[in-house]
Amino acid sequence: MITGGAGFIGSNIALKLIDKGYKVTVLDNLSPQIHGYNPKNTSPLYRSIINKVKFIEGSVTSKEDWVNALENQDAIIHLAAETGTGQSMYEIQKYIDVNIGGTAIMLDLLTNNTHQVKKVIIASSRAIYGEGKYKCEEHGIVYPTEREDKDMEIGDFSCKCPVCKKNIELLPTSEDSKIHPTSVYGITKQNQEQLVLTVCKSLNIAAVGYRYQNVYGPGQSLSNPYTGILSIFSTRIKNGNEINIFEDGKETRDFVFIEDIAHATILGLEKDEANDNVYNVGTGIATDVVTVTNTLAKYYDLKVPIQISGNYRLGDIRHNFADISKIKSDLGFEPQWSFEKGIETFTKWVNEQETPEDKYDQSIEEMKTKGLYK
Rank of each mutant, 00 (worst) to 15 (best):
M1T: 08
I2N: 02
I2Q: 05
G4K: 00
K16Q: 13
I18V: 14
K20R: 15
G21W: 11
G21E: 04
D28H: 07
Q33S: 09
H35Q: 02
G36Y: 09
N38Q: 13
T42V: 06
P44R: 06
Y46D: 06
V53K: 13
I56T: 12
S59T: 14
S59G: 03
T61V: 14
W66A: 04
N72S: 11
N72D: 14
A75F: 13
L79V: 09
T83R: 12
S88N: 02
D97V: 05
V98A: 08
T103F: 03
N112M: 09
H115G: 08
K118T: 05
S125C: 10
I128S: 01
K133P: 09
C136D: 15
E138H: 04
Y143C: 04
R147E: 07
M152I: 13
E153V: 03
I154F: 15
C161W: 05
C164E: 05
K165I: 13
K165T: 13
L171Q: 15
D176R: 00
K178L: 14
I179N: 06
H180A: 15
Q190M: 12
L195M: 15
L197Q: 11
C200Y: 08
S202H: 05
Y210D: 06
Q213K: 12
Q220E: 14
S223G: 09
P225L: 02
G228Y: 07
L230P: 00
S231C: 03
S231F: 04
I232D: 08
G240R: 05
I243N: 02
I245G: 07
F246S: 03
K250H: 06
F255N: 02
F257R: 08
I258Y: 12
I261R: 01
A264I: 14
L269H: 13
A274R: 04
D276N: 03
V278N: 10
V289F: 07
V292Y: 07
Y299E: 11
I306E: 03
I308A: 03
G310S: 01
L314V: 10
I317S: 12
I317L: 10
I317V: 11
I327V: 13
S329Q: 09
I343S: 00
I364C: 05
K370Y: 08
